[in-house]
Computed example of a mutant assay.
Amino acid sequence: MKLLTGLISLAFSGLALAAGPSYQLQVHPPVLNTAIPSGSGMSPTFQQHYLVVGDDSPYLFEVDARFQVVKKTLIKDYPVNAQGRIDKKIKPDFEAMTPLVWNKQLWSMVIGSGSKPDLREYGYLLSYDGKQKIEFRLTNLYKQFFVAGGLTPTQTINIEGLTVDHQYMYFLNRGNSATNMIFRVRLSDMSDYLAGKVTQVAEVKKFDVKLPVIDKFEAGLSGADYWPEARALVYTASVEATGDAYGDGAILGSFVGVIPLHQLREGQTLDLSRSAMPVMVNGKPVLTKIESIAFQKADEHEVRGALISDNDQGASEFFGFRLRRKD
């Protein structure tokens, strides 16, 4: 039996209400890691390990199953302070990453958020064997996102989530300057862009989403991974009491949710406000900014892996999780 069974579609005021299977989220108590500043992106690797980036760190970290650092690789030589953090004025804002097969080789793709022109519009391909590193510019692609998203001159792109399926790459825009949006690009087009064969991708699809609201602040997309057995994106989001993509605010809560790919429809806003699951430990909301999600095990019934959060105090927290279908 397929994990995801259909969509009950209700249309009103341009909203499409998400419906279908329900899920149960179990989150383990956090593991604090002070060696990784401002954890923001994460993806799985071998032997139950994870690769991690921080938005103000120049390193790619590898952590083991207990979330302890076993290796770190310099992405780019930025100046850092005594705590190993890059000053906010010059940080590249590495907010998202995903494993990517490119040119028949496995890479980690790490990208800046785009929330400041030029400075935060760089990305890197880091080979899993640790021998190669490729820097690339995202300026033209982010300009395409800006146009596709209908942003105004006072708004900024803020890409905080990244994942791939067998055909597309998905970029999740956090809605704290503009709105929550998912941009979809064909992998073949992205491959040509990364290779420098084209300066723009042929097509960008944009999907609007609506997330839960706490104290008048809507949650913002922050991370994603792809669940192949379910043909769905599993996303993270958090509520931050700020109205722009630059300043930090109080964290009011975080969420995990599932988006079956067939629910992504242009011209409709996908309403996830009821299906998003609050991140809770021992019955209490986790008041930290969940930034990313990565799977280690997945089948058609459940996924297991880890969440990472940035506590805005120079450290990172990891949470093991289990997400399973209830019916």
Score class of each variant (00 low, 15 high):
L252G: 08
K210N: 08
G220H: 08
A224E: 05
L51F: 12
A237W: 05
A202Q: 13
A18H: 14
L60P: 00
F94Y: 15
T73V: 10
I90M: 02
E135C: 02
P29W: 03
Q68P: 00
E302W: 12
W227N: 01
K210S: 11
G249Q: 13
D129P: 02
I134T: 09
V52F: 05
I251F: 02
A294W: 07
A96M: 10
F318P: 04
P285T: 11
I214W: 00
T45A: 13
Y226T: 09
A148E: 05
A18R: 15
G223R: 05
V256S: 09
V303E: 01
R184K: 15
S43K: 09
G6K: 07
S43P: 00
Q200F: 11
E135P: 03
H166T: 14
A16Q: 14
I159N: 00
R304K: 14
D192S: 12
T34R: 14
D87Y: 01
S292E: 15
E302D: 03
K116G: 04
T156W: 01
N33H: 08
D248Y: 02
L307D: 10
R325S: 08
P44C: 10
P228R: 13
P79V: 12
A315M: 03
M1H: 11
L272Q: 06
L187Q: 12
T163H: 01
A65T: 09
Q296T: 13
V239S: 02
L252K: 12
A82Q: 12
F255G: 11
G20D: 13
K91G: 08
I86M: 03
R265G: 02
L194M: 14
K133D: 02
Q313R: 13
V201S: 00
N180I: 07
A276C: 07
I90Y: 00
K2D: 15
K91V: 11
A294Q: 06
V27M: 03
P153S: 11
P212Q: 10
A315R: 05
G114M: 03
E62G: 02
Y78W: 13
Y193E: 02
L25G: 08
G41Q: 08
L10N: 14
I293A: 02
N158H: 02
I308P: 00
W102S: 04
L141I: 14
H301M: 05
Q47M: 11
M277H: 04
V52A: 10
A82C: 01
Q296H: 12
D55H: 04
L211W: 03
M280P: 01
G20F: 04
L162N: 02
N173P: 01
T139L: 00
F171M: 03
E62Y: 05
F12M: 00
L74P: 00
F207L: 09
K216I: 12
V185Y: 04
K210M: 12
G175D: 08
A16I: 09
W102Y: 15
D271P: 01
F319S: 03
A35T: 13
L141P: 15
V303L: 06
T269Q: 07
H262M: 08
V256E: 09
V70C: 09
L307M: 07
G220Q: 10
I111A: 04
L125M: 06
S43G: 07
F146W: 10
V239A: 03
F295H: 08
F295M: 10
E291D: 07
P278D: 07
L287M: 12
A315W: 03
A19E: 15
D165A: 12
Q144C: 03
A241T: 05
L119N: 06
L287C: 11
Y235K: 01
G243S: 13
